[in-house]
């Protein structure tokens, strides 16, 4: 008996993890694929009409999905390069100073630990224009001679602007942290050698600094793409839960709306949309990895 126990003891230690992962990750993964091919699945009776690609076709023709796809791609294309580039600028500046560096780093990291739903409300208040008040940001715009605009319920470009701004504000702490530690780990001997040779600063940056931190930059680009494709709660914070009505829905938002809420109850459509999203992210990540393999220097 004891020997028997000894032999399978390791599995006993692993049992909880395996059970939870099996029930809430492996099984759902298989199940979501099945759902996505079941046509006319009824959530209450749990029966379906047949199998096929109908759900995918439906989702791809749904104007809400097309809108969500467009919004998501715009978020990705705008925020990933901007946030990575800006984070690089800040990190370089941080590395070039000594006094107060710790203070700046702490301040910059603050958005990481705050509740994005809660701070999103503050952004909404700052950018919103109501009957009572112009809102903080419009006040600034007017001070510079522009005309105010409602960023929350106004034209599409304005909503897109505040959405991207908030996304960047939220993702920067992580990127700054990773890049500052990458910059700090560059061996100072290279800089010393360059100084002896009298190398120009721009050359130092492009020939030493950037190649040395390129693995981390690519890492941030890849995780940035993945994260931006999954944008959802930032949008909820700014525009409310009915993102379709605001025209600001994202792909993840579309999945959840199909599943739950006023427009919900269609797990099949939700599954098809989630799988389409997964395929897009997978493709782009693969392309990213191929590009980085060609360009990352150590």
């Amino acid at each position: 008996m004891k020997r028997y126990f000894e032999r399978y003891k390791a599995w006993l230690y692993l049992l909880p993890a395996i059970l939870f992962l099996g029930a809430f990750m492996v099984y759902p993964l298989i199940d979501v694929i099945i759902y996505s091919f079941e046509e006319g699945y009824n959530f209450v009776t749990q029966t379906s009409r047949g199998t096929g690609f109908y759900n995918y076709g439906y989702v791809l023709r749904d104007p809400y999905f097309v809108q969500a796809l467009k919004n998501t791609f715009l978020i990705v294309i705008i925020t990933v390069p901007l946030s990575t580039g800006f984070a690089l600028l800040i990190s370089l500046a941080l590395t070039a100073i000594k006094p107060l560096r710790n203070l700046f780093q702490t301040v910059y990291f603050l958005p990481y630990v705050t509740n994005t739903l809660a701070v999103g409300l503050v952004f909404m208040v700052l950018f919103k224009k109501t009957e009572y008040s112009e809102g903080m940001v419009n006040l600034l715009i007017k001070a510079f001679g522009g005309s105010g605009v409602d960023f929350i319920d106004g034209p599409y470009w304005a909503k897109l602007f505040v959405m991207c701004l908030y996304t960047i504000w939220v993702v920067l702490p992580f990127k700054i942290l990773i890049l500052t530690s990458a910059l700090a780990s560059v061996n100072p001997i290279y800089y010393k050698a360059a100084r002896v040779d009298g190398t120009r600063p721009s050359r130092i940056f492009f020939r030493i600094t950037l190649p040395m931190i390129s693995p981390m930059v690519f890492y941030l680009v890849i995780t940035g793409f993945i994260g931006a494709f999954k944008a959802y709660s930032d949008e909820v914070a700014l525009f409310g839960t009915d993102l379709n009505a605001a025209g600001m829905n994202t792909m993840v938002g579309y999945v959840y709306d199909m599943l739950y809420g006023a427009s919900g109850g269609y797990p099949s459509y939700a599954s098809a949309a989630a799988l389409i999203l997964f395929l897009i992210v997978l493709t782009i990540t693969c392309i990213n990895l191929m590009v980085s393999r060609r360009n990352v220097h150590y």
């Binding site: 029930a23 809430f24 990750m25 759902p28 759902y35 959530f43």
Partner: peptide
Amino acid sequence: LMMIPNELVIITNYVT
């Protein structure tokens, strides 16, 4: 399993 996005499994988990 780390590669599996939460969005994919959350649908079934919701049903479960």
